[in-house]
């Protein structure tokens, strides 16, 4: 019999509610909570259940993940399941984080389930099968069944069908497939054409992602009076990375005081960006975050003044939704200091 291990949070692990959200990871033999239903549905034995508090996972991610990976070391398992997480925001991120780490370290398939309205979906849908889950825990049976259906295909090495057929979030992967009814392209074309001509709903076979274009801002009217801020997605941070910004798929950002700094020095600042060779930026962080040049131009009165902080995150793999959220969190600081323009340095 193949073996499975299930991850759940403090609530579904029957430890307790919000007051227990800080609990550290625990490994239990056998099945607790949803793991019991998985035991019934899976073509595998659920040998262990891992429980971790959502807050603990959220605020001590690295340590929590490391400890879970340690717990799993030496255990035999053929598949790893997390959730279902329904619409619980932190829980969805926890499920995605743990599944991704387990998949990378142990090379086993992972499956989880979340509601479409949660942050975990956009963050992790490209990394794993995330079933489209319900919004409340009363959908438990149905969501577990859906997860088990895909998990069993993975366990039995059967092909997993398309996202539509199986009910998972599309992973950004498109493959050719033979239509069951063999309907030729010419007939599909006529059907689509008639519907489009008659204003009836139809489904394109190549959905074009919506582009969220931001218009270019008008030029700064009077540069001599303007207050300028500096933002980068190049991952320049103080060497100790105090805000623990991730090296890829970032969800965190930081702002760092440069009011007394004439230039960013190597050894004091570095890049934590995993998407390019860091050598040049580590040696001279100004190549990505040009504090040196801006200070010179400020002294030469080319522009008014420099906002006293620079802002930094990592762009590689970061979802548009996360980038948008982080920008929205930065904006109040700019407004408070009456910043007129932002220089956005990408890599």
């Amino acid at each position: 019999m193949k073996k499975a291990i299930v991850y759940v949070n403090q609530f579904f692990g029957q430890v307790g509610g919000e007051e227990q959200a800080g609990i550290e990871p625990q490994l239990h033999e056998g099945q607790i909570g949803p793991a019991m239903q998985f035991q019934k549905e899976l073509d595998a034995d659920v040998t262990h259940t891992i429980i971790c508090g959502d807050n603990y996972m959220g605020s001590n991610t690295e340590e929590a993940v490391d400890r879970i990976l340690d717990m799993l070391s030496g255990k035999e398992f053929d598949i790893f399941l997390a959730g279902p997480a329904f619409q619980a925001g932190r829980y969805t991120v926890a499920c995605g984080t743990v599944c991704k780490a387990v998949k990378e370290k142990f090379g086993v398939p992972v499956v989880t389930s979340m509601n479409s309205e949660t942050p975990g979906v956009d963050m992790f849908k490209k990394n794993m099968y995330i079933m489209k889950g319900g919004n409340i825990a009363s959908k438990m049976r149905q969501d577990v069944k859906a997860m088990a259906r895909v998990a069993n295909k993975l366990l039995n090495k059967e092909p997993v069908g398309s996202a539509d057929e199986e009910g998972y979030f599309p992973r950004g992967i498109r493959h050719q497939t033979w239509l069951a009814d063999g309907k030729p392209a010419s007939e599909r074309m006529v059907d689509m054409l008639l519907k489009k001509l008659n204003g009836e709903p139809y489904e394109t076979e190549l959905p074009i992602p919506k582009r969220d274009l931001v218009p270019i801002a008008p030029a700064v009217k009077d540069l001599k009076q303007a207050k300028i801020a500096l933002v980068t997605t190049g991952g320049i941070v103080p060497v100790e990375n105090p805000d623990r910004i991730q090296s890829a798929s970032a969800t965190r950002w930081g702002r760092y005081d440069i009011s007394q700094t004439e230039a960013l020095k190597g050894g004091v600042y570095k890049t934590i960006h995993a998407g390019f060779d860091p050598a040049a930026a580590d040696a001279d962080p100004n190549v990505i975050t040009p504090v040196d040049a801006l200070k010179v131009l400020e002294n030469e009165e080319v522009y008014g003044s420099l906002h006293p902080y620079f802002y930094s995150t990592v762009g590689t793999g970061t979802t548009e939704a996360e980038a948008q959220r982080m920008a929205k969190e930065m904006v109040p600081y700019f407004k408070e200091d009456h910043v007129d323009a932002v220089i956005m340095v990408s890599t």
């Binding site: 539509d164 050719q176 309907k183």
Partner: peptide, 21 residues
């Protein structure tokens, strides 16, 4: 598939489509 002779049949025969996985 690039080298399947007239494999994609855009002229209208194609029984294939593309799906999200």
């Amino acid at each position: 598939n690039n080298s399947m002779f007239c494999g994609d049949q855009v002229c209208g025969w194609s029984p294939k489509t593309m799906k999200e996985f």
